[in-house]
Design a protein around this nucleic acid. Sequence first.
DNA 1: CGGCCGTTGATTGGATCCAATCTTACGATA
DNA 2: TATCGTAAGATTGGATCCAATCAACGGCCG
Lengths: 220, 220
Amino acid sequence: MARLLDAPPRWRTATEYVEATLKAAILEGRLAAGTPLRQDDIARDLQVSRMPVREALRQLEAQALVDSVPHKGAVVTDISASDAADSFAIRRGLEVVALRLSIPNLTAEDGVAAAALIDAMEEEADPGQLGQLNRRFHMALYARAGRPRLLGLVDRELAVFDRYLRFFLAAQGRERMAQQDHRAMLAAARAGEVQQAAEVLERHIDAAAAAMAGFFAGRG
Amino acid sequence: MARLLDAPPRWRTATEYVEATLKAAILEGRLAAGTPLRQDDIARDLQVSRMPVREALRQLEAQALVDSVPHKGAVVTDISASDAADSFAIRRGLEVVALRLSIPNLTAEDGVAAAALIDAMEEEADPGQLGQLNRRFHMALYARAGRPRLLGLVDRELAVFDRYLRFFLAAQGRERMAQQDHRAMLAAARAGEVQQAAEVLERHIDAAAAAMAGFFAGRG
DNA sequence: CGGCCGTTGATTGGATCCAATCTTACGATA
DNA sequence: TATCGTAAGATTGGATCCAATCAACGGCCG
């Protein structure tokens, strides 16, 4: 007899499946920057036709995770100091706005959840998991901004940033995570100190940008 | 005999052609908010197959110009007070950052060009052209930011904003364009006064957001 | 010996066809 | 009469096939 509740299919369309799979592979570093993404190979690996692959690649292009040239193909977006600077500029603009809008609506539970994420980061060693936790922590602070499009862009940009963070942590070690900034931001947010929280966040992102720039300068 | 110089094809791929055409139609208001976008109809009208239409619709979805539901279809994104608030929040975050980065690199010619755009706005009556000029003026101020991804997002969001501006101007009249803000921004930018220009821009966007919110409130 | 041009293979873009899904209308049944 | 179920049409998602474009290679001519 059939189960009463069948597990819902994890993806509604093949395109979503391909997009999610490729995105995860890129963010987790399994597809290195610069890797050419051949439609045929991906289609064969994922057991779908080339069409959902094409659409997924377009979606990822819109998310700045792949670069595509007409009639040439798609490539995993390169890591570069210049692109990192772009990412930090975008984050600084969007996240500060999101934080200011969100803080007045944050609940005590939100604060507890964010604190738990900070603690989890203390004990996590894997750079990939650290990136995920960092992303979730930031998003937890912005979640009550009530601006879905804004939050979508922030999430997208944090995904891009994830790749740089992984890159950076692998070389510099996890002690560079600036947990004191996270705690200060959370404390200010819980106290409803919008201005102070925003300033901490700005310094946090600027410091990360400077560290990343120095990192790139150090390796040519 | 063939001409020595054939006009280069305006678009390299059919997808680009469809995307540009649909985007223009949406921004110019010829495709009203809520209009269902049937793949077959568009393909027939533009003399292409359904496939480039599908890809173009995905691109436009990433630009927040159409909403798409799997197996249901695409619709021109609705105009709403909530989405307008999203747009203003995003613009406020991104444009302030872009302006700060751009001002130190602006040249005298950039200032002249921006001034010309302000003058052109004074004499333009058509809301659509006004929107174009407004967009070009803002982009002219940010052009030297040297952050291509950031500028791409700003341009995208200004495109979304164009629809609201057209909507607003049609009802409120062109005198609501806040040209004095534009002049003040330009003056501060030319003088290299980053902080002051940024503050004017913030007030400019906040005022526009407030006016738009009042407009929406007034019509239910 | 070197640069230019055509040819060939690989890869993507586009067209057509088929399958899956949603919507609507109609009818059966409580 | 209201509601559920079902069947038909419409529309989108996916697969397969063909055409256009690009890169590499090799021959030809200066």
